[in-house]
Computed example of a mutant assay.
Amino acid sequence: MSRQAVWDPVQYGVFGDERARPFFELVGRIGGAEPRYAADLGCGTGELTAALAARWPGAIVEAIDGSPEMIAEARPRGIPGRLEFAVGDVRSWRPRQAPDVIVSNAVLQWVPEHRELLPRWMEALAPGGRLAFQVPGNFDAPSHAVMRELAGSRKWSGRLEGVLRADPVLGPEGYLDLLAPLGYAVDAWETTYMQVLHGNDPVLEWVKGTALRPVLSALGADAEEFLDEYRVLLREAYPAASYGTVFPFRRVFVIASRNAP
């Protein structure tokens, strides 16, 4: 996760059902035998990791996240001997044994070196093991583009230079080209969910839980002034309709298998 961001489990939980949809689409397409040992790298508050443990009742599930705030929220969901949560950095993680499945949900956009990390995770898998991950693919969307433009303005650039990245992930074709030449079977695709959000300034509330966290952390007490300016830009980019505010939510998915038949 981003070293600049302080995570708020409550804010992250806003629109929790909508955020969870890509996870369940990803996990629903993991084939193969039921794992004996699985890892969830970047587990957040642990609700979705608990769903993994329920899906694979015979598996030991190891879950880590770089945010102490998230892990404090997750630990009560642990199951002795079956589901364990710990603070950890996905970049330096090493499995205790060769995992049958590695899942990473909406994490790798925070890891600049993840293109080098993915082959290492593949090598760590047991024979026939699967790596499944998904990342946001909406960094060119207005929600992110106007955030970067505002952060780069004369007023804010001095404090926000280098805080936001424009291209933190690849498209599905990029991950296919990264992993397939190494001999792995790769299923890569993308989905755009037309999320219909409700409430006042719902897109702002959405990004406050994720993409905006580094900005809020960098600005501290001055963040409200930035939010006031950003709110106006979002209202223009995402006008409310009679049935809600439409927020296109593009995600990139990859499932890569080691020694797949």
Rank of each mutant, 00 (worst) to 15 (best):
V101I: 10
F249Y: 12
K155G: 01
L160V: 02
A74S: 10
A260T: 07
N200R: 14
A124L: 05
M194K: 15
E69T: 03
A223H: 05
P112I: 00
V61Q: 08
E116S: 13
V246F: 09
A180D: 04
V169M: 04
T191V: 09
G220F: 10
E113C: 12
D140L: 15
V215N: 02
R258A: 10
K208D: 00
H144G: 11
R213K: 11
L164C: 13
R75G: 07
Y175Q: 04
R213W: 03
G162F: 08
P80Q: 03
L108I: 00
I102W: 07
A240D: 04
I255Y: 04
W56T: 00
F85A: 06
F247C: 10
E34M: 14
P112R: 07
R21M: 08
P99C: 08
R96L: 11
P239V: 05
L179I: 00
A211G: 15
R115A: 14
E25H: 11
W189S: 02
E173T: 01
R251N: 03
G46D: 01
T49L: 12
T191Y: 08
W189H: 01
R130P: 13
G244W: 01
W156Y: 08
A98F: 09
G137T: 06
V103D: 02
P76Y: 04
A86S: 13
D228T: 08
A72D: 05
G46R: 03
G81K: 12
P181L: 08
T49P: 09
E25T: 04
V232N: 07
A20E: 03
R82K: 11
G162S: 02
G66W: 06
P181W: 00
D222G: 02
P35L: 06
P127C: 03
A39V: 14
P57E: 00
A218P: 14
E116G: 15
R77H: 04
P202F: 03
P119D: 02
G171S: 07
F23Y: 03
G183V: 00
A237G: 06
